[in-house]
């Protein structure tokens, strides 16, 4: 464990807490893409297949349970909660995210570390996470103004993977034989997807204006 990875995990946790706060406090999920939340639930379920087979540390196990649990709770809130589901932007959240799932799975079948069940699903989860934010970014552009908590959610979610990139650089120099290119390249793609959001987020923060994404 290094400070970059720990910061990344904490930033990721904060993003989830901000999202839960928004949904719980405002009893609304307007501006949140259910499809992105479903993709993230799938990412965690397919990435942590070793949850019960390999034990690294209490921290590792607890965080995996928190990520899986919170993503399922958020999907439940947006699909089933009698009040929250009314504010879901169903007609705006129309990204065909099944294509993202299929594309990630096909790529995982082609590019993986070892052709084993767990490695294929691990690579799948890495590729899927890199593009899981797309429905959310499309929804933000369509819904025009972004409320603060939603903007902060996307900001922290995008930042966490940037910390992981620093972690991979750190591991490369300290553990030398660190070879996992799959994560590095996917992580770079994932962070790049947020680039324009970060730009508009910074502009809105500098001018102290509401976050406006160009349509």
């Amino acid at each position: 464990m290094n400070i970059f990875r720990f910061s990344g995990d904490m930033t990721h946790l904060i993003s989830i807490l901000v999202l839960l706060l928004k949904i719980y406090a405002t009893k609304s999920c307007s501006g949140i893409s259910l499809k992105t939340q479903e993709l993230y639930a799938l990412v965690f379920l397919t990435r942590y297949l070793n949850l019960f087979t390999e034990f690294f540390s209490v921290y590792n196990t607890v965080m995996k349970l928190v990520f899986i649990g919170s993503s399922l709770v958020i999907v439940w809130y947006m699909r089933m909660h009698r009040v929250v589901k009314l504010s879901y932007d169903k007609e705006l959240d129309t990204f065909r995210h099944y294509f993202l799932v299929v594309a990630s799975f096909v790529l995982a079948l082609l590019v993986h570390e070892k052709f084993t069940f767990q490695e294929i699903f691990w690579a799948f989860s890495i590729y899927l996470e890199a593009i899981a934010i797309l429905p959310q970014l499309v929804l933000l552009q369509r819904s025009g103004n972004v409320d603060n908590l939603t903007g902060q959610y996307v900001f922290f979610l995008g930042s966490y993977r940037a910390f992981y990139i620093l972690n991979w650089i750190y591991r490369y120099f300290t553990e030398n034989h660190f070879a996992r290119l799959i994560s590095c390249i996917s992580g770079l793609v994932q962070t790049a997807l947020y680039a324009d959001f970060f730009y508009y987020y910074f502009i809105s923060w500098k001018n102290n204006k509401k976050l406006q994404l160009p349509a």
Binding site: N60, F67, Y164, N167, H177, A179, R180
Partner: peptide
Amino acid sequence: TEGASLKDEL
């Protein structure tokens, strides 16, 4: 070590 694969990462 090669074994330090990323499985210990979240």
